[in-house]
């Protein structure tokens, strides 16, 4: 048996699993969108001409983009501090970031229900100190969804960036400083360009993750703050409009793949090492 045969035989079961149970079903979903009896592109025309569907799409974009920007900002600062912490403290902080990451999305969304609810701990606290006299309604707003999403993705950003920032040798910033660069200039011209690939990887993970999330918008946004994920579920399982659901799925796949491709091209262009 040739080496090539052996290699293929070993890789075959996993390859088949992906092609048969991911490739075919997803392709069939995408194919379905062109099989609208009203015409091959009718389902897309219906999607892009519907005010409600476009509102959901733009809201999802807005929430995902806001979540990404906030997570990058918070994650970068924290990763910077963690990467420079003494090694014992560093491992402790990494454990503190990994713990929420490995805790399920439902549990983490539930925490925010307990905090932000009408009878929640935040309202209870504000009433107790006398800052408010009536409980505020904080749930089912765009704000509550974004807070819970940032909460979901900041640990991922921290862990991605700690790895990248640790890889930037201190000697480089020292060299920049000894050649007369101010700390700000050294940061901008030395650290930032080297951190770009990590920032891009992290942003893609957070953006696609929040763009396609289901549990968090479902629990903290509800019907009022419907996003693409919850919309897809509602169309598929509540109204049984599979054509509509497939069109939503297709839009999600296109946005996700386009983001990944564009950002990886950008990463290659900006990477000072690979050129």
């Amino acid at each position: 048996m040739s080496h090539r045969m052996q290699a293929w035989l070993l890789a075959a079961p996993a390859t088949l699993l992906v092609f048969v149970f991911l490739g075919l079903p997803v392709l069939s979903t995408l194919a379905m969108t062109f099989a609208d009896p009203k015409g091959p592109l009718a389902s897309y025309a219906a999607f892009f001409n519907s005010g409600f569907r476009m509102t959901v799409l733009w809201r999802t974009m807005e929430v995902a983009l806001t979540t990404t920007i906030l997570s990058v900002g918070i994650g970068f600062v924290v990763a910077w501090v963690v990467a420079r912490a003494p090694s014992r403290l560093k491992s402790l902080l990494i454990i503190a970031a990994v713990f929420p990451l490995l805790t399920g999305v439902v549990v983490r969304a539930f925490a925010w229900l307990v905090i932000l609810g009408k009878n929640g701990i935040l309202n209870s606290f504000l009433l107790w100190i006398g800052a408010i006299t009536e409980p505020l309604s904080m749930l089912y707003t765009q704000g509550s969804v974004i807070v819970a999403m940032v909460y979901l993705f900041v640990p991922l950003m921290i862990l991605t960036l700690v790895g990248v920032l640790e890889g930037i040798p201190q000697d480089l910033t020292d060299a920049a400083a000894s050649l007369g660069a101010t700390p700000a200039a050294a940061f901008r011209q030395v650290v930032l360009p080297m951190a770009v690939p990590g920032l891009i990887v992290g942003s893609v993970l957070v953006f696609t993750g929040s763009f396609t999330s289901y549990a968090t918008p479902q629990l903290l946004g509800g019907e009022r703050q419907m996003m693409m994920g919850t919309f897809l579920y509602q169309r598929a399982m509540v109204t049984f409009d599979w054509l509509g659901a497939s069109t939503i799925a297709a839009v999600m796949v296109v946005v996700t793949l386009a983001t990944v491709l564009l950002m990886s091209r950008l990463a290659r262009k900006l990477n000072p090492v690979a050129g």
Binding site: V26, F211, L232, Y233, A249, V260
Partner: peptide, 10 residues
């Protein structure tokens, strides 16, 4: 790469 929710639906 493929959104989980799309995979679930499919």
């Amino acid at each position: 790469l493929i959104p989980e929710i799309v995979l679930g639906f499919s």
